[in-house]
Write a protein that binds this DNA or RNA. Sequence first.
DNA 1: GTTTGTGCAAATTTTTTGCATTACA
DNA 2: TGTAATGCAAAAAATTTGCACAAAC
Lengths: 156, 156
Amino acid sequence: MNEETKDAVNKILTNYLEINKHRKTSERFAILNEIYSHNGHFDIEQLYVMMKNKKYRVSRATLYNNMEILLDAGLVIKHQFGKNLAQFERAYKYRQHDHLICTDCEKVFEFCDPRIMQIQRSTEDMLRFDVQHHSLNFFAKCRQLTETGQCQHFKK
Amino acid sequence: MNEETKDAVNKILTNYLEINKHRKTSERFAILNEIYSHNGHFDIEQLYVMMKNKKYRVSRATLYNNMEILLDAGLVIKHQFGKNLAQFERAYKYRQHDHLICTDCEKVFEFCDPRIMQIQRSTEDMLRFDVQHHSLNFFAKCRQLTETGQCQHFKK
DNA sequence: GTTTGTGCAAATTTTTTGCATTACA
DNA sequence: TGTAATGCAAAAAATTTGCACAAAC
């Protein structure tokens, strides 16, 4: 992760913890930095293994607890791609995007469409809510199949 | 449920089971009819209790198994509203709509915006996929709070 | 008569909770 | 020093699996 981003997210977390009167524990910053040292999606178990491999002493319970804080601080985004497993990704300075999930291989693709913000604004006006975040997933079949009729990426 | 819809969904299921060489068991039709006798969202446990109350002899495993079939037949839609609990709703002749979830009371509101189909078509062209279904959720805070600063619906 | 589908219970997976201990403030 | 936060293990919640039996075909 570049130093600029590292500094920025650490400051955001520090600020969030101070405002909400939570303690600045070393675990919280270790988790944040671990998350921001990777791109892409991850689940709690993957984060746990990554941190254990780096010899951090951290528990799953602490990861679950702190994901709530990072979510609330706007530093991570939570997804559910159809399965009963929460997936996360970093949120800071990561362009707004949504996801298309291949129903053959379950690979996740990103796309970006500004019209989603127009829908959001209309919905806010219509229902009289302020949207904090959204989740748009397309579940789709790949048009280009291999000779054996399978999706071109890989088969589950 | 009106008789016309009842006949239609039963025919769709019969047809699906024949094409896919699955057996036409009484449980499959009982589950379908139970689902179509209610509006709104439900989870497996609620469906299980509803059927048990009506003295059906049905197991959770059968419900889980058959939701896959009903999903594939396009007769139900599956949702994940942020929690690790699959929610379902009937799909046949139920207008296309998406959801806004109140982050205070977790109540789910429906809305409909044709622009989502435009985004879908653009995404299909760009990524070269055929979208089978989508899920769009807005997580939002209610603008109208009660005197005690809580959401106007009810508090979790 | 075969074999798919079922109910039940046990197993698995993911997340939450209880509690003794640690370490921020 | 007081108390929020932690690690660990046990519990809970949701779903899947194994297996004997039932019922489609």
